[in-house]
Design a protein around this nucleic acid. Structure first.
Length: 155
DNA sequence: GCCAACGTTGGC
DNA sequence: GCCAACGTTGGC
């Protein structure tokens, strides 16, 4: 089992939106970055825990927990001409973009802001906190997960 | 709204 | 295969 952090802009799709979805589950569509895609396509397993991160939020930070809820399958938005993630170069016989479904688990009482996370010495080196890091799907180590979860509980 | 950092595209 | 131009992400 691996652990993850998924980023989303709350004005696009927030953890509260996920909570309101049918079965509190929704496809994580729209990822158009190969590294992020590869994580979903090749490494995500059903049941893997996910930190739900709100980017472009006030403040940006980890807001709760979700989990991987499906095997990878082709992202349907790549074939939808009206979708803003439409990709004319993707061949339906050999789709370029994949996704997994994500299920709501819980919301933290308080968001753990990016600033707070940066202040924690033991989280140095976390992908999220690396300079220039903008990967929207990233692995989280067991150690990092533990530190952050404890923080969320104690806050 | 700005802009730094990064990713992608496409001409050569 | 290089790299300039362009597009995107995401904090501030």
């Amino acid at each position: 089992m691996k652990r993850w952090l998924f980023k989303s802009e709350p004005n696009e799709f927030s953890i509260w939106d996920l909570q309101k979805c049918k079965n509190q589950t929704e496809p994580w569509d729209g990822v158009r970055n190969y590294q992020a895609r590869n994580f979903m396509m090749k490494e995500c397993q059903i049941g893997d825990p996910i930190f739900f991160y709100h980017s472009n939020a006030k403040p940006p930070g980890i807001i709760g927990i979700a989990e991987v809820a499906s095997k990878p399958y082709a992202d349907f938005t790549q074939f939808d001409k009206k979708d803003k993630h439409y990709d004319p170069k993707s061949d339906p016989e050999n789709p370029r973009w994949f996704l997994v479904d994500v299920k709501f688990v819980k919301e933290f009482k308080n968001v753990l802001s990016l600033n707070e996370l940066r202040d924690i010495k033991s989280l140095e080196g976390m992908v999220l906190l690396r300079k220039g890091s903008r990967l929207s799907i990233q692995p989280v180590s067991d150690k990092e997960w533990g530190i952050i979860e404890n923080l969320a509980v104690s806050k």
